[in-house]
Each structure stands twice: as C-alpha cells, then as structure tokens.
Design a protein around this nucleic acid. Structure first.
Lengths: 340, 340
DNA sequence: TTGTATGCGTTATCAC
DNA sequence: GTGATAACGCATACAA
C-alpha cells in the first residue's frame, strides 16, 4: 500500500479528466453509459476509494452524524447510540460521539466541535433544561434531532418514548392486579419525562376510579438509596400503600430492597414496578416489572428522521414529533393472583 | 451566523497573508510574539474557528480516533468507549464508533471506512481470532491499539485486563474462604481471554495444594442458560464441588439461579464467583462476587497509548503490551465464615 | 520574521 | 457528453 489512487489517477489512465470521472462515479445523467462503465471498471482495477475528507471540504458537509449524550456508558444511551449507528451506516454515514456529562457548558462546547467538524446532523439528549445553545445548530443549517430529553421549543424534530403512556400502562397493570393503594416514586419534577410519567400515573388512577392521595406521591431522585428511603416513608404511613410504581428502575430497586429487608412479601403484600427496563431488572429477586422504552428502536428512528430530512430538501416547515410506544414487561414483582 | 471566518479573513484584516496567520495560530517559532498576539486577538474578535476538515485534507490525517467494537451497547464496551472518549478529548480528538457485530468481514469493512476517513488511529477489540486484515491499518501507517480481545501477532500495542491474575484472585479467594472442591466454568477455549482465565484458576489451585480435577472444569459459552446447565452437571457428580468460579458473570448467574432453585445455600453450601463485574452482579441475591476489569480505566489507557506514540515520532520499535490489574469485588456469594 | 506559491482530492460552474 | 478551471481552508517548501 503506497499511495492512494484518486480520481485524477483514474482520469489519467483513461485519458480523460477528473471532472468526467467524478461525474461518472456519482452516476451523473450527463455521462454516457459507456464511460461510466469504463470509469467504474478502472476505479475498481486501481483500487480506488473516495476520500470523504476532500468531499467534505468541498461540500462543506461531511457524512458524519454527531451524537451528544450525558454519558456513553449508561445502558439507555449506549443502546440508543447503537440504534443510530446501525441506521446511519445504511446510508454510508458514521457517528461521532461526545459526552455532555449532564453539563450544559460541556454540551455547548461539544456542539461547537461538531459544527466545526461540518457534521451533517446532530442527535442529542439534553443535558439540562436549558436549550438556548441549540440555536447555533439551526443557524448553521445543521439537521437537529433531540431524543429522550427533548428540546421542545427549539428542536424541529424530536423522538421520545411515550412516558405518559408507559407510566399509565404500569399503573393500570397494578390496578388490574387488584392493588388498591398505589404509590408513585416520581423523580425530579423539573425534568419533562418525569412530569409526564407522573401524569400517566394520575390518569390511570383517575380513569379507573382510584382516588389520588398526594401522600402517596414522592418526588425524589433516581438513585437506589432514594428508593429505599421513600419506601420507608411510604410504609410508615398510617395508611400505607399496597403497591409502588416508580418512575425509575433504580428507585424501584431501592423500594424492593427495603420491602425485602422488612420481610414484606412481593408481590403478595406489595406490588412494585420500575421504569426503563434496565438490564438488571430481569435478574432481581423477584424479577422487576418495568416499562421498556425500546431504546434500540429509538436510535434507529432518530437515524431515520435525519435521512427523511436529507432526502426531501424543502420541508423545513413540517416538524416531526415522534412518540414511541412503550412496552410493559410484566415480571414477578407485580404479578399476583387476584383474590376476588 | 452567516459565513465562517477563515485564516485568510484574519490575514486580510491584518494586511498580512494566510501563511503568517496559519503559522501564528500554530505557535510557529519563526513568528514574532507581536504578530502572534495580533493574530490571536483578531482571530478571537472575528470568531475564528479552525476547519478540521481542511486541515485533515491537507495533512492526510484527521484528529479522529476510530473505535471498532463488537457491540456498542455491551456494558463492557460502552464503558471502555467512554474511557477512550474522555482521554482523547483532552488532546482535541474525537471518536468515531463502528460495530463489528463479532463478524470478521464487517470488521474489515469498518477498517476500510476508517482508513478512508484518514483517522489518526484505530482502537479495536477483535471480532474473531482472525487478525490478518489488521495489516492494512499498519500498512497505512495508522496507529493501532487493540484491547481486551487483542491481536497478539500483528498489533504493536495492546491493552487488556490481566485475566490470569483476575481468575487467580477469585480462585484464591475461594480457597481462603475454606472451599475445598472448586469448579470452573471456563468459557470457549478458542478465545484467548478464557484460556488465560482457566490458567489462572489452575495456577491458584496448584500453588495452594489443591488438586485439579478435570471433571470440575466445564468449557461452555457465557450465557445464563449455559451456567444453569453446567451447574446441574456439576452438582450431579458423585463428588460435587462446593464452589464454582466462573469465567463469566452470566454463566455465574445461571449457576446461582440453579443452586437457589435446588435450595442449595449460597455461600454456606456453595460459593460462587463471576467475572467482569457486570452492573447486575451487585443487585443479585446474594450479591455476586466478581472480578472488575476497570473498564473505564482501560479505555483511558487505550487513549493514552495513542498519544504516547504521536508525541514520540520514531520508536515504532518498542511496542507496549499493557496488562491492567484486575480487582476482586468480594460480595456475599462467596463470603462465608470459615470454620476452622 | 514574513510572503509566495502550491497542493491535498473533490465537486460544481462554466464553456464547448 | 466532456473538458477546463476554480474553489473549499489549511499548511508547508521555498524565497526573500
């Protein structure tokens, strides 16, 4: 492997010019089929591979989709990233990954880097509620798709799981299983997705004739320890719940641990559901019912949304707001025989 | 945001030339401090940001490290990727991620893509035992670092966990806990890392006066179901083991499940250890003792190895073979009071 | 210490 | 249907 062959090498070999070769390779209609074949054949013979860097410089745009997530190694994000990768690969694109570490400034910096790298699009899950720095992306005419923690105001296209529906499903399932007093571990209400999950919980109760008791709703973070503490608070109420639907698998795990430590039987005495279907949920004892967000699918859809845009130049007017159907994965922690 | 400013814009503003500006920006010693300051100031004033695509074309090399892993969303890999990202970011580099899906051909294709993208280096964990296609990378004079599933023959630089040591530690720990007949779930012996783990197991036994009984070594895959089946086989022996050290957390989980289903007490009647410290291990009941490979650290080291090379031009002669110390995470599944 | 000229490989705009 | 030319933005070899 000495020197890479270029279009001019091919041109020289055929006694024609780089322009013709370039057109032939891109299947330009103004080139005769004969020369196209000729060019393609000698391209193969010479082992030609296009230089995407040169093309990117010329076009002012590279075949790269930038992806910014809080942390690469969270199972949710790594799975979405995989989906994006697999989708964009079909179109000959690659992905460039950045981490925001849930910090708005780091996110803004990554955006600058990706803009400078002339990426064709940016997929991101917001680090914070602040979305003002996304304007830059749009001003640079770079395609933008936000997912999960979406930018409602600024981002034209969004892809997210239907958190309302997911939480509704989980709560409804508990009702169907005969649980009467269902508590909710609500997560930070500053964050969109957790607000929606609480709304789903409330809707399920209301539509099924259950009263909403604010004592049963605890807004907390998504840590295991928070779940343990919340469960303790709840079970020490004069009128404790007989089920807990959590907006997070981790706090659900904490609740599960607390109940077990107190000898409270799951699911007989208390039913528990989580949210996100983290890999560990299926291995817990008892296994934890959870809401799957179809993360791989989410990534693929994010990818698709880009190419829907690329393929139809004009319609910057119609924005896609995609909401993915969640799936309730019923496991032992919520599955009891109903005694009528 | 209309047009991006370039070095010639800066040059024009200062009545000088692009060459000078370019040199000033890269802190070339042949430029006076005065003009350097001038250039840097107006660069800032004009909101200049360098175009990495142009630089890459000119240099024949972009500030991108390509990363190829079997699957992005395996916790092991996503964690290593994070480490690589955080390390290369310090040097102003970005990462481009590809998946091999454990397929040699896909891996080879990704390599071609990354070579064409003029990446500065490629980090990869081999898809298969075949490493012949890595020659291309070296021939193109692109830095290559293999990790975990390393390419012993062709890759100049390798980073891996010390599998021998990790398995040795786990086995030794079981011995120290007073277990007498320790079995091993060995994983596919076609794969390097599993061979090393078996070696560590054997060494620990031998060095501590335990006999090696080949009936207690089962070579299997790393799936939960395989662990269950293997445990069944082992516990049905005339002379069954009182401990199992597995080369994989998943098969250890299977063994754990089987024992529980049979009412065999862990760790009292049987001790179990896994390998990799998967996120789920700490939440199992009982929590699973496992060997941590410090994956984040591994990624950072991989990143460092690249820049060690970049910064010292010549020494293509000395190759780095780095072996990371594993850490035994002792949990309940192997921790019993020793009755002397 | 600075300026001039050139090329990296591609594509698009003209011409013919 | 094809060719000539310029330009994308930067960095270096060579002059001065």
């Amino acid at each position: 492997m000495t020197k890479k062959t270029t279009i001019s090498d091919i041109a020289k070999a055929l006694n024609t010019t780089a322009a013709t070769v370039s057109r032939a390779l891109s299947d330009n209609p103004r080139i005769s089929d004969k020369t196209k074949k000729l060019v393609n054949d000698t391209a193969k013979a010479l082992g030609y591979a296009p230089n995407p860097v040169a093309a990117a410089l010329r076009n002012g745009r590279s075949k790269i989709i930038g992806v910014i997530v809080p942390y690469i190694d969270r199972s949710f994000f790594s799975s979405v990233i995989r989906g994006i990768e697999e989708e964009v690969k079909k179109h000959g694109y690659n992905i460039m990954i950045c981490q925001s570490l849930e910090d708005k400034d780091a996110e803004a910096e990554n955006i600058d880097i990706l803009i400078n790298a002339r990426v064709a699009g940016i997929a991101l899950s917001l680090a914070s509620n602040d979305e003002s720095h996304l304007k830059k992306i749009i001003n640079h005419n770079i395609a933008l798709v936000t997912f999960d923690r979406i930018a409602d105001n600024l981002a034209p296209h969004t892809v997210a799981a239907d958190d309302f529906e997911g939480s509704y499903l989980a709560t409804k399932h508990l009702i169907d299983q005969g649980y009467k007093r269902i508590a909710h571990l609500a997560g930070s209400q500053k964050i969109n997705i957790y607000r929606n999950r609480q709304r789903g919980y409330r809707a399920a109760l209301e539509e099924n004739g259950h009263e909403i008791d604010n004592d049963l709703i605890i807004s907390t973070n998504s840590k295991v320890i928070a779940g343990r503490e919340s469960a303790e608070t709840l079970l020490n109420l004069k009128n404790p719940p007989d089920a807990i639907t959590s907006a997070s698998d981790f706090s659900a795990l904490g609740a599960l641990q607390y109940c077990k430590s107190k000898g409270i039987k799951i699911p007989e005495e208390i039913g528990i559901t989580g949210f996100a279907n983290e890999p560990f949920t299926e291995y817990l004892e008892p296994s934890l019912t959870s809401v799957s967000q179809n993360t791989l699918e989410m990534g693929k859809i994010v990818g698709q949304v880009f190419f829907d845009q690329f393929n139809t130049e004009e319609q910057q007017t119609q924005y896609k707001k995609i909401l993915l159907k969640p799936e309730l994965i019923v496991r032992k922690s919520s599955l009891r025989t109903i005694n009528k």
